[in-house]
Design a protein around this nucleic acid. Structure first.
Lengths: 192, 192
DNA sequence: TAAAAAAGAATGAACGTTCATTTTTGTTGT
DNA sequence: ACAACAAAAATGAACGTTCATTCTTTTTTA
C-alpha cells in the first residue's frame, strides 16, 4: 500500500475535513478552528501545510479536481473510437459523482461561487483536455455536432452535477435506469 | 409608474447590493457593513427590514426566484400545445439568464451551496410548477419522454446556468446561433 | 540532543448585531 | 398655512463574539 508519512496523513485529514465542512456549511461557516478540530489537529498546524485559508481551499480544489479527472479518464484510451471513448468517460464521471459524492459536491460548489481564485480555477480546467481532444476528433470525423466545447459540456456532462445535487438534497434517487436514460440524453444531445 | 415608498426604495437597494456583493465575493466576503455601504444606508438600517444576515439572504433568494419564474412564464399559457409552451418558456428562461445576468448568477450560487436554508429553498421551487405540469401533460400526450422531472430539468433547463456562468467568467460569448443550438439540444433531449 | 513538528494560548482585526441618539415624517390644534 | 409634537425611520458608535493568524512552549523524530 501507499507509504504515507505522518505529515501526509495529517494533510489528508485536513483536506477531508475542509471538504466535509464546506459541503455542509459553506465556506463562510467553515472556520479554521472547526476544520482543525475535525482533523484532530491544532489550528496552528494547518499553517504548516497551507499558507492561509484561501490557499487551503485552492489546494483542496485543485487536488479534488485532479482526482476527479484522473478517475474520469482512467479506462479511457485516446485511440478508442469516439463513441466508445465518450461512453466510457461519461460513465466514469457518473460513477465518480455518485460514489465520491462528497468530493463531487465540493467541486460543484467551487465551480459556482467566487470561493476559488482565478488561477486555481484555470489550473483545474486544464485536466479536462483529453475530453476536449476527443470532441475535436469527433467533430472532424463527423460524429459529433460542431458545437462549442462549452455547449457540449453543458449538455453532455454538466447535467450530472445537477442530478447529483438533487439526489444529495433529497427525494430523488438516481438508479441504474435513470443513469442509462441520462446517458442517452447526453449522447443524443451531442451526436451528429 | 409604481409608487415606491422611501422604505421600499431602501429595501430594494439592500437587495441589489446583496446580490452584487455575494456574486462578486461570495457570502463569506459580503459583510453587512459592505452591503450597507453599497446601499447607502447605515448597517443598523438593514435590521429594520431583515431579521439578520441569514434572513436577508433567504428573502433575496425567494424574491429573485419569484422574479425569475414570473419572467419565465410571462407569455406562457397552459392551454398552449406542449411544444410551443416549452419553446416559449425555454426562450424566456434563456433571456432572463442573459439579460438579468446578476440575478441569475445569484440564483445559481444559491442553488449550489448551503447558503440558503431549506425552507426558503423549498419555497423557491414551488413557482416552477407550471413547467412541471406542462411536462406531465407532454408525457401523457406522448410528446415528451417519460423521464423524472429532475432528469428533464437537468438536460433541458439547467445547462443554461452552466453556459451563463461560462459566459460571465470569460472567453466564451453566447450569441444567437449558440442559443438556437442550445435550444435544439434541450428539446431533442426531452422530446419523445 | 538538536532540529522539526505540533500544540494551546494569545492577538488584533473584523464581523454581526444592538444601543442611544438624531432626523424625518405625518398629524394635530390653531 | 403653520407651529408643535409624537411616532417612525435612520443613524453612527459601541458591544461582545468569533475569526484567521501568530507566538511561545512542548513534544516528537531522527
Amino acid at each position: 500500500m501507499a507509504e504515507l508519512t505522518k505529515g501526509e496523513i495529517k494533510r489528508n485529514a485536513l483536506v477531508k475535513a475542509t471538504i466535509e465542512l464546506v459541503n455542509n456549511s459553506g465556506f463562510h461557516a467553515a472556520p479554521m478552528s472547526k476544520i482543525a478540530k475535525m482533523a484532530n489537529v491544532s489550528p496552528a498546524t494547518i499553517y504548516l501545510y497551507f499558507e492561509n485559508k484561501q490557499d487551503l481551499v485552492n489546494q483542496v480544489y485543485i487536488e479534488v479536481k485532479a482526482a476527479f479527472t484522473e478517475y474520469a479518464f482512467e479506462s479511457f484510451d485516446p485511440k478508442m473510437e469516439v463513441e466508445e471513448g465518450f461512453e466510457i468517460i461519461w460513465k466514469r464521471i457518473a460513477d465518480f459523482k455518485l460514489k465520491e459524492c462528497e468530493e463531487a459536491m465540493f467541486l460543484a460548489q467551487c465551480d459556482n461561487t467566487p470561493m476559488i481564485d482565478e488561477p486555481s480555477r484555470q489550473q483545474g480546467i486544464k485536466h479536462l483536455q483529453p475530453l476536449l481532444d476527443l470532441w475535436e476528433r469527433g467533430k472532424n470525423e463527423g460524429k459529433i455536432k460542431p458545437l462549442s466545447d462549452y455547449i457540449l459540456y453543458a449538455y453532455a456532462i454538466n447535467p450530472l452535477s445537477f442530478l447529483m445535487i438533487a439526489q444529495k438534497r433529497g427525494g430523488f434517487q438516481l438508479n441504474e435506469d435513470h443513469l442509462e436514460e441520462a446517458y442517452q440524453s447526453a449522447w443524443s444531445s451531442i451526436k451528429k
